[in-house]
Design a protein around this nucleic acid. Structure first.
Length: 432
DNA sequence: TCTGGGGTCCTAGGACCC
DNA sequence: TCTGGGGTCCTAGGACCC
């Protein structure tokens, strides 16, 4: 049996923990650059606001209804997420942190120890997460991950279930499958949903009735086959191993839409250097080194410009590295290759692939193994300072703002950012 | 000049997820 | 004027090898 714990409207819930006056009111959280809506309270959803709506388009509606608007505060959400996940890992033997606001639980074998059923365990988890962190969650329990997702969805949508849905019998599973539209099944996106609906497959129950051959042919090969089997109750995916609560990534990325379009090389270089530097930090935190570095540059997807609006270039590094200085240098080389004068670039990013544990780096003929001890000390120190005093406290000259600049040219707006209540001493919540 | 099968590895692109 | 960021996995096709 698998459980899925999903936090309701996670970013809004995090904000409400520290600003109780937002309780019961419509609230939305905006993406980077205050661009789109990425989290909505139930009250905001009721106004018809959709996930991903551009802020500038819905601004009149937000004002008309007095909706509380917040910029995103990832330091806060990341910290709250760790608290929720830590609690779960204390109670359940195996937890897979699936995203910032969701975790799969392996509940197999636990039936014997909880009375009267796993539903009771789910209710306990739900109550305790709320009591300990202030975050409301829903829990779905079922024989496969795909069915646990489906159960969770019902737990959220049906108030009478009180946040918990346990699909313990074949009859219950069949009922659940009939309640859910095919486009709401985990793994069915826009394209597949359209294809399925044009063939008269409208519900999860109908999809579960499809043959393996059909699934393979129309839903992306083995992935689709696995999906359909899981809907029928046959487990095809286990829990992914995660070390100290977070998954070891196979690739990692740091990218950002600029505050405004950029056409000057030094401005874009500043951005790309900052992203490379940030990516190197993430790499070191998971103890890896990268073999492949990709830089990409994008122009606006909107308006009259025709594709391709994005271009990328990949460098194969002679030696896998996690050294900020080297990665920034390679990124500059890649950017030069890609650069076309006179363009209005709106976004850039760095992707690191081909990850391997750091320290296993092969020797090259004229180099010491991996990094010099001195460089290693420097980077360790840099990470420690940035962890302690906040991101960007110490950085390479290439990534910094010029004296007198409030923001780098590529940085955007975050007009309504809440304080980092839990991760910065100066911003702790004061109770008087 | 004609003729073949079977692998691997890499890249680009597409689909999906939160 | 203003439209997020960070991932995963799979397939197809080309280059190359024996």
């Amino acid at each position: 049996m698998f459980g899925l714990v999903d936090c309701n409207n996670f970013y809004v819930s995090c904000e409400r923990v520290f600003q109780p006056r937002l309780e019961g009111k419509p609230v939305v959280v905006l993406s980077n650059n205050d661009g789109c809506l990425i989290s909505r309270s139930a009250e905001a959803k009721a106004l018809g606001l959709q996930m991903g709506d551009p802020y500038f388009q819905v601004k009149p509606l937000l004002q008309q209804h007095g909706v509380n608007v917040l910029s995103s505060n990832y330091a806060l959400y990341g910290d709250m997420s760790r608290r929720v996940m830590w609690y779960l890992s204390q109670v359940v033997p195996a937890v897979e942190v699936y995203s910032i606001d969701e975790a799969f639980l392996d509940l197999s074998g636990l039936e014997r120890y909880v009375t009267p059923s796993l539903a009771e365990l789910a209710r306990t988890l739900r109550a305790n997460v709320k009591a300990r962190t202030g975050i409301p969650v829903c829990v779905g329990v079922a024989p496969t991950k795909t069915l646990a997702k489906l159960a969770n969805r019902l737990a959220k949508k049906r108030p009478e279930l009180q946040g918990v849905c346990y699909l313990d019998s074949a009859a219950r599973r069949q009922w659940a499958l009939e309640q859910v539209a095919v486009e709401d099944v985990w793994g069915i996106g826009r394209q597949y949903a359209q294809k399925l609906m044009s063939r008269g497959i409208l519900t999860a129950a109908q999809l579960a009735g499809c043959s393996d051959g059909f699934a393979r042919q129309h839903l992306g090969g083995v992935v689709g086959q696995r999906l359909v089997r899981e809907l029928r109750g046959e487990p095809c995916q286990g829990l992914l191993p995660s070390e100290d609560g977070s998954l070891a990534r196979r690739s990692l990325c740091c990218s950002r839409t600029f505050g405004q379009p950029l056409s000057a090389f030094p401005d874009v270089l500043g951005a790309v250097s900052a992203f490379a530097s940030r990516a190197a930090e993430k790499l070191r935190r998971q103890g890896d080194a990268a073999h492949l570095l990709t830089v990409f540059l994008s122009k606006s997807r909107f308006g009259l410009e025709l594709p391709p609006y994005s271009a990328s270039t990949v460098l194969t590094l002679p030696v896998a590295t996690c050294d900020t200085v080297e990665l920034v240098r390679y990124a500059k080389t890649a950017l030069k290759r890609l650069w076309q004068p006179g363009q209005r670039y709106t976004k850039a990013g760095i992707v690191l692939d081909g990850l391997e544990p750091a320290g296993q780096t092969q020797l090259t003929l004229f180099e010491a193994p991996g990094m010099s001890a001195q460089r290693q000390r420097l980077l360790t120190e840099l990470d420690a300072l940035n962890r302690r005093f906040g991101k960007g406290t110490v950085q390479l000259a290439a990534t910094t703002r010029l004296p007198g600049q409030v923001r780098a040219p590529w940085e955007g707006q975050a007009q309504w950012r809440s304080p980092q209540y839990t991760t910065r001493l100066e911003e702790l919540l004061l109770v008087r």
